[in-house]
């Protein structure tokens, strides 16, 4: 398990927790929008993919019906906004029959204690 609480520089980072899958609702897009704006303002931002939010990272996504934009290009854009810390709940991957090899971006996995520790260590966070 990776220690989530050590990095002093991150204690004031804004943690955006993404819990919804792409396409079916606008939660994921609107959550990423908040992350991008915060980063554009120079704030350190981290993302935690929990629950159905892990589906956001699934490899091989495309635009939706009626040309609905996907969120995968937004996720690929994160590095341009210097958002580099992506945390994923290992248990939520397991529950959905996925592994990190199914994901489109390099991530750091957390066990349940790690998820709780990350939440506890970040004074500023928003769930989408």
């Amino acid at each position: 398990m990776t220690d989530t609480t050590q990095s002093a520089s991150s204690s004031e980072a804004l943690l955006i927790v993404l819990r919804h899958p792409p396409h079916g609702s606008s939660w994921l897009r609107e959550g990423i929008d908040v992350a991008l704006v915060a980063a554009a303002f120079g704030r350190e931002v981290e993302l935690l993919f929990q629950g159905d939010g892990v589906f956001a990272l699934l490899e091989g996504q495309a635009a939706g019906a009626l040309d609905q934009k996907g969120t995968h290009p937004q996720l690929k854009m994160l590095e341009m906004y210097d958002i580099e810390r992506l945390w994923v709940s290992q248990r939520d991957l397991d529950r959905r029959g996925l592994t990190v090899d199914d994901l489109m971006l390099p991530v750091t996995t957390l066990d349940p204690d790690g998820v709780a520790a990350l939440h506890a260590a970040r004074p500023l966070s928003l769930i989408f």
């Binding site: 804004l14 908040v34 915060a38 303002f41 704030r43 928003l126």
Partner: peptide, 9 residues
């Protein structure tokens, strides 16, 4: 959205 980030901070 910047105003939201500002409010959080």
């Amino acid at each position: 959205i910047g105003q939201l980030v500002d409010a959080v901070l």
